[in-house]
Amino acid sequence: MKVTVKYFGLVAEAAEKSEEVLEINEALTASELKARCLNGLAIAEKDSVQIAVNQNLDDKTIINDGDEIALLPPFAGG
């Protein structure tokens, strides 16, 4: 299955990209996918990065074909 992964802020900076399409061949939770995407990236506090699946923050959810994934560093609005 294919999912679109969007990177923001310091995650996009570390990944040197803002978006990619990933091919996944196994059942993964959002949390497992997050670990996979962040693996090898120079990010000091990986626990502070949240994952959104179809715009919902839920790292327990199972990833499905066509999902829109976003890796979100700490929020800084306002």
Partner: peptide, 26 residues
């Protein structure tokens, strides 16, 4: 204000006078 700061996915790059930067955290 409190809800916006806590829940909205907005990211802030703080730019210094020498063009270096750091990422803001609420």
């Amino acid at each position: 204000v409190e809800e916006i700061k806590a829940k909205v996915p907005v990211f802030g790059k703080e730019i210094f006078e020498d063009e270096t930067h750091q990422w803001k955290v609420n």
